[in-house]
């Protein structure tokens, strides 16, 4: 893991601008947040292909659905709360049901939004988007993965939800990393415990694994960037080969990674799965780094859960 920290929303904006150069069909919609979602980077490069819809997310999603039928590849952006939350029904009925080629770039997901507090901290978006038939849900863990996920989403034909964060996070992957949609990544081998993490919790899971190893607990770390369709094989293998799975996510314990993993294990390889997640509560204001501690989305909690349950 390098010392460099980059927020995945920055990666999103930069990747869009790169994508715009090679794909003339890509168009970008924003809802008065181009500076925050970083689609402003694309706007600067391709002003004629960037549309600010104003503070009207529901309409923005509809515009994207309509323009997708004319052969364009729209990326729609807002905070996760407003594009997955407020516009949920538009995403379901205008995009999901007709399976249109719309990409949703949701930034400011989770409690790491920080000071803005609970109204803007969306811990429910993965649950909402995952419940829509045919929707791909991707939650990248770092800059390198986020950029490649944007290109992969553009290449895939159909609706994709991409989840990005506001907080600068460590770069976990190397330059040679290859993102494969729907494929989990084993970042570290181990045979006693498996930590299955997504998003910014991947770096924290790696830190926890290091300390667990020091305590003599062989710990596997898996990065699940694609929450839907989920990589069943990598989960079943972990369930069979290790004694315990701890899922790590910056999302509600209801409907996110913990749910997705246990949906697989309960049917295919029953085993003990313990969550590290936002425990069915709203967020609050504070610096993001402090909130991750307050809500127990940290290395210490992961280690504690392992020691308690092993």
């Amino acid at each position: 893991m390098s010392d460099v920290k980059i927020a995945t929303r920055e990666s999103y904006g930069n990747a869009l601008a790169e994508l715009g150069k090679v794909n003339p069909d890509v168009v970008v919609f924003d809802a008065d947040l181009a500076g925050a979602t970083k689609t402003g980077v694309f706007k600067k490069a391709f002003p004629e292909r960037h549309f600010d819809c104003g503070i009207a997310e529901s309409n923005m999603v509809g515009l994207a659905a309509g323009i997708a039928t004319t052969g364009k590849i729209p990326f729609v952006s807002s905070f996760a709360m407003f594009v997955a939350g407020r516009a949920f029904e538009q995403v379901r009925n205008s995009v999901g049901y007709p399976h249109l080629n719309v990409k949703i770039g949701a930034t400011h997901a989770g409690i790491s939004v920080g000071e803005d507090g609970a109204t803007h901290q969306c811990n429910e978006d993965i649950a909402l988007m995952r419940s829509i038939p045919g929707m791909v849900v991707i939650n990248p863990c770092d800059d390198i993965e986020a950029k490649q996920a944007v290109f992969a989403a553009a290449e895939y034909v159909g609706p994709v939800y991409l989840r990005f964060g506001r907080l600068a996070v460590p770069v976990v992957n190397g330059e040679d990393y290859k993102f494969e949609l729907g494929k989990g990544v084993t970042l570290k081998e181990g045979n006693k415990v498996t930590l299955i993490a997504t998003g910014l919790m991947v770096a924290r899971a790696l830190d926890a694994a290091k300390e667990l190893e020091e305590k003599g607990i062989s710990t596997r770390v898996i990065n699940i960037h694609t929450i839907k369709p989920i990589d069943k094989d990598i989960i079943i293998k972990a369930a069979k080969e290790t004694d315990l799975i701890v899922t790590c996510e910056e999302h509600s314990v209801i409907g996110g990674l913990f749910s997705a993993v246990t949906e697989v294990t309960s049917l295919e390889a029953p085993c003990k799965v313990v969550p590290v997640a936002v425990m069915d509560t709203f967020g609050k204001s504070g610096p993001a780094a402090e909130l991750l501690e307050v809500f127990n989305l940290n290395k210490e909690t992961i280690i504690e859960k392992v020691l308690e349950n092993i």
Partner: peptide, 23 residues
């Protein structure tokens, strides 16, 4: 266009018209 949930169709029509214009 798939429709049925009221209010959504007109937004998609605006998107189509925008697509026609820029193409």
């Amino acid at each position: 266009m798939t429709t049925g949930s009221l209010g959504q169709g007109i937004s998609t029509a605006v998107g189509m018209a925008l697509g026609g214009k820029i193409s």
